[in-house]
Design a protein around this nucleic acid. Structure first.
Length: 291
DNA sequence: CACTTGACCTGTCCGC
DNA sequence: TGCGGACAGGTCAAGT
């Protein structure tokens, strides 16, 4: 479930918590989560100091002073949670935290820092992964080469958006929004939310959307992603930020997980269906297929 | 060639 | 209570 806003929230959190920290130990209990050779870990991870945290699409990059980076994809249930040396349970709002003592049974990788604090990579479903590789090689990964532009990038215009969508003119708009090679970082939640906001049925073919609609979708998508970042992302089931706390965006969501409730715009009962193989939430009145 | 389905996994929820 | 099956949904590979 971590999409662009969730990964960005983790990035901002880690940026405040672990920059300048020196890694002194690493353990993992699921080799697929972190398949690097032990020798590389020993040479380029242990003893390394964290210099920067970056994000591209839904991927997190932790840069090290050894010239290597940790490339991390949280996939659906991944979490990156930092714990200081002193753990204060009961502090803050009890509902904020989804997790207790760490490591727990979902912890796949643990990084320990020189000051006694730790970073836990938890992943209930084991789809997520972490790779150690030379920083300069990251951009040449096949995944990165194929990625579309950042939707919140300063240079990303409505015209770019429209042109890229048109490459998949005959496809349904939701399937295209979820395609990371068209635009990077959009997942199921924000696809549904932005299509509702732009009053577009998710199965509408791209070629059937008037230019004005594409413009609206561009504006709404950017606005929603930005708002979601401000709200700390969406916690549907597992997602938490770098401090183990929930995001609050779903409180503001208009359709996602709101089937059976009235459409905030017209009052029609929202429905849940399946589009492009994904659970899809929409208003059957506001969002109709045009052709 | 474009799109759909299945695999990767585990936990939760629902119906019987 | 226990149990089978559907479902959650990011990405890649395989199939139609």
């Amino acid at each position: 479930m971590p999409e662009l806003p969730e990964v960005e929230t983790v990035r901002v959190g880690l940026n405040q918590l672990i920059i300048g920290k020196k890694i002194t130990a690493e353990t993992h209990d699921w080799s697929k989560s972190f398949p690097n050779a032990k020798a590389d870990v020993g040479r380029f991870l242990l003893g390394a100091t964290i210099t920067a945290i970056r994000r591209r699409a839904k991927v997190l990059l932790i840069d090290l002073d050894t010239g290597y980076s940790l490339v991390i994809h949280l996939k659906m249930t991944g979490q990156l949670v930092y714990r200081g040396k002193m753990v204060h349970f009961g502090a803050g709002h009890p509902n904020d935290s989804l997790i207790g003592e760490l490591p727990d049974r979902t912890t796949r990788v643990t990084l320990a820092f020189e000051d006694g604090s730790k970073l836990f990579f938890n992943d209930q479903r084991k789809f997520g992964w972490m790779r150690l590789m030379p920083t300069i090689e990251v951009e040449y990964l096949d995944f990165f080469q194929k990625l579309g532009p950042e939707p919140l990038g300063a240079t990303f215009t409505a015209e770019d958006f429209g042109a890229r969508l048109q490459r998949r003119a005959k496809s349904g708009i939701k399937a295209v929004l979820l395609d990371q090679t068209v635009v990077a970082g959009v997942g199921n939640i924000y696809a549904d939310e932005s299509l509702w906001a732009a009053k577009i049925h998710p199965e509408t073919k791209v070629q059937d959307l008037p230019l004005k609609k594409l413009h609206t979708l561009y504006t709404e998508l950017r606005h929603i992603l930005q708002l979601a970042i401000e709200k700390g992302g969406s916690t549907d089931r597992n997602y938490v930020n770098a401090e183990g706390k929930r995001g609050s965006y779903l409180t503001f969501a208009n359709v996602f997980r709101r089937q059976g409730q009235p459409c905030p715009r017209c009052g029609t009962t929202l429905i849940k269906t399946k589009v492009a193989g994904r659970g899809t939430h929409l208003c059957p009145n506001c969002q109709q297929v045009v052709s």
